[in-house]
Structure formats: structure tokens, C-alpha cells
Design a binder for these strands. Structure first.
Lengths: 220, 220
DNA sequence: GTCTATAGTTCGATAGAC
DNA sequence: GTCTATCGAACTATAGAC
């Protein structure tokens, strides 16, 4: 914690703090590791190959991350800062607002192919309870589904959505549509526009479960 | 081909053909391999571990499948005989008929957890062009999406579905919903009933794009 | 058809020099 | 902070006995 803080402090105009150089190396390792985990998954990724691409030896890499598992966890935590905090810590004004923000998230993910494809691979792998990312993904899905269900429930209470909406089922379905399109997009990127597909889905979904029966209104 | 035929021929009442014993071993290896590919993916699976669980040596295993890649391809081809031929070679009477059959397929998959989880892992892995299953999954998705799109197109032509239905988008969405629920089911089997969720989705979808606006009719 | 033996790599991780 | 050197283990695949 202390180290994290000091690493992020700006002591000089040139940001040449005590850990500045090591930080740069650390970030570079994390970036390369994302691509390798995306291509090979966890088990089949190799610290030696990652180190070689970064331009250090395996021993040098293990100075920054004490083990392969530590590297994976660091990559996942570093990735999570962006999307979850950006899209799921805010409170949504309405279900419509939530749907529009999710569309933005997917559009953002399509511009980060490495990280997005890594998640595709690791989600599949980490269903095994012994997998080093198993706890991470269980926690992540529980959190996302919980927030989504709560948002839908609140919208049903305010009268935006039909009162008899099965909020749990719809939340699971939304996540499924996002993940499923992501798989097809990773396999054939040119044939799937994830954000466009999600927008079309939300239009139909909103017309089905909103009390007005209207499609999703455009961004406010 | 000759060998395949002779292996499947029943020359005696006890089905003790020339390859009967080897066939049994072969099938056992395929079954064990499914579980290993489901747990480890392709790269991180080990022929030695698979052989040990089957109860043969690694050399013995490699008599039946000349390489690890050959084993994977054999597993995939053997798996495909069941679902694709069972559900996608028939012509559908209508979009409603197609949706009901897909619900049956998903219900069937939930009773084959090993094979289903293997597909989850391999789909993620095989997005990489160099992956030994890459061609298989590209072909598979192209075929499924093509048949689904054609079915929807035909239903739009007969007036079952709205004429302006975006059949490509809906086909991709259906596959996404199936795959996405499969991922959540693999992570938390007790919290996701894939067939029930798909049925609920099809009900809403059908009400949205059918000309009658009615939910999906029950099985004929 | 299954075995043993082994070649030839590559792996994650540690120890210690600089 | 990065290097070299190295350990012990695991990996795929081959060769040849039985």
C-alpha cells in the first residue's frame, strides 16, 4: 500500500519518483501479459516468452511479479480499474440510462481487443474451481448481476418497466447477450459489430418490458 | 474410411468384430479427453495425464491417435455427430419450430456438462488463428448462423415474422444468448437454468418480431 | 496393441553475482 | 533491478521389444 502510494506520487516536475523507472517496466510487462493470456490462456502462457517479448529475462520479470499466478492476478486487477469503476460504480437514472451506458461499455471494449479477448479465454478456463482466476470471475459476475438486477428492480418499482418483469432473468440475459456477441466478435471481428447488435437488442428488449412499449430512447 | 466401416459393422451376434476391443479403448480415450480439454483447454492438457486416467501409457494412447492435435480433432468430430446432425440437418417448419428445437438442444446440453464446458473453453481459445480448433469453430459458427438466418428469412417471407426483420442480427443474437447463458451456467450451474432462460428469451423475441405479436406457442 | 525407454524441449522458480 | 546459471519436473513424440 505504501509502495503503491509512493509509486503514484509526483515528487518532481518530471515525475521521476523513486519508482518511476520500475513502474514503466511494470506497466510494460502487464501490457504484454494481457496479449499472452489472451492468446494462450493462463496455463499455456509462458513467463519466458512474455519476458522475451518485454525485453527482459525471466529472472528480471520475476523480480516484479513473484510468480505466474501473481502476474495473472495483477493483470486482472489492473484491468478491472477501468471498466467496472467507470461503468458500475455510478448509480443509473433509469433502466434506459443503464442500457445506454452498457452500449458505450461494449463500444469501448471493441477498441481494446487484447483485453477483451483475454476475458473471453479466461472466463472459459476459470470455470474450474482450482483456476487462479476462478474467484475473480465468480466475484465479478455476482457483482455485475447484482447491480443489474437492482437497477431493473428499481425501474420496475418506479413504473418505467412492467411490474411483473423477471429482473434476475433479464439481468442474466443481458450479460449473456454481451458475452455471446463478444465470442462471435473475437472469432470474426469483421462480421460482428458488438455495439450495434447490443443496441438493437436493447431496443427490442425495452419495447418488450417497458410500460410505454416504446423502443429505447436515444441518449439524453 | 474402410477401417471406420469395418469397425462399425456387426459381424457377429456379440458385435465382436475385428476392431471391437480397440474401439472400446478408443471411445474411452475420447471420453476422458473431453473432460481434460474442458478443464485445461487444448494447450495445457497433457497426453500423459489423459493416458494415466484411461489406464494406458502415453505410448499406448499415441497408437490410437498419432498426436495431441489428432486427438482434439477426433474429439470435436465425434462430438459434432450428435448435436449438429440431430438438430441442424432437419428443415424447420417455422421459426417457432426452430426456437423450440433449440430449447431442446440447450436442455440436452445441460445434461452433458463435460462436453458443454469443453466447448466453452475451446471457443475462447480457438479465436487465435493458429489454434488447432480454429478452423473447426469458424466452420461451425458459419454453418449454424447460416442455417439460422435462412430459417428466419424463410419465416419472414411466409409472413410468420415481420418482413423487415434483420435476420442476420437476430441469428447472431440467438447464438449469443445461448453461448452467454452457457458461460454463466458453467460458472454457477445452480443459479442458471439454461433451457428456462432461453425459453423466456424466445417468448419475448417471438412477440417482438412475429406478425401476430403473440408469445411463442407451446410445442405442437 | 501395449509396453519401456528415451530424445529433445520447455517449464516455473531459486540463488547469487553485479 | 537485471543478469546468468541452474535445478527438478513436465511435456510431445519416437523407436523398438514383446
Amino acid at each position: 500500500m505504501d509502495r503503491t502510494n509512493s509509486r503514484h506520487s509526483r515528487n518532481t516536475a518530471k515525475a521521476r519518483g523513486p519508482y518511476a523507472v520500475g513502474d514503466e517496466r511494470r506497466r510494460r510487462i502487464l501490457d504484454v501479459a494481457v496479449e499472452h493470456f489472451a492468446q494462450w490462456g493462463f496455463h499455456a502462457s509462458s513467463l519466458a516468452r512474455i519476458a522475451k517479448e518485454v525485453g527482459v529475462t525471466q529472472g528480471g520479470l520475476l523480480h516484479h511479479f513473484r510468480s505466474k499466478e501473481d502476474l495473472l492476478v495483477s493483470v486482472l486487477e489492473h484491468s478491472e480499474e477501468h471498466d467496472i469503476e467507470q461503468f458500475f460504480t455510478v448509480d443509473f437514472d433509469s433502466a434506459a440510462d443503464c442500457f445506454l451506458r452498457l452500449t458505450d461499455l461494449v463500444e469501448y471494449n471493441s477498441r481494446r481487443p487484447g483485453r477483451t479477448r483475454m476475458f473471453n479465454v479466461l472466463i472459459g478456463e476459470s470455470c474450474e474451481p482450482g483456476h487462479p482466476a476462478h474467484a475473480f470471475f465468480k466475484r465479478r459476475y455476482a457483482m455485475v448481476l447484482s447491480r443489474l438486477t437492482d437497477t431493473l428492480r428499481a425501474a420496475a418499482d418506479t413504473g418505467e418497466l412492467a411490474a411483473d418483469t423477471d429482473c434476475t432473468a433479464v439481468a442474466q440475459e443481458i450479460v449473456a447477450v454481451m458475452d455471446g456477441h463478444q465470442l462471435q466478435w473475437a472469432l470474426t471481428p469483421d462480421e460482428v459489430d458488438m455495439a450495434e447488435r447490443l443496441r438493437g437488442y436493447f431496443d427490442r428488449l425495452y419495447a418488450s418490458i417497458s410500460t410505454t412499449g416504446e423502443p429505447l430512447p436515444p441518449k439524453a
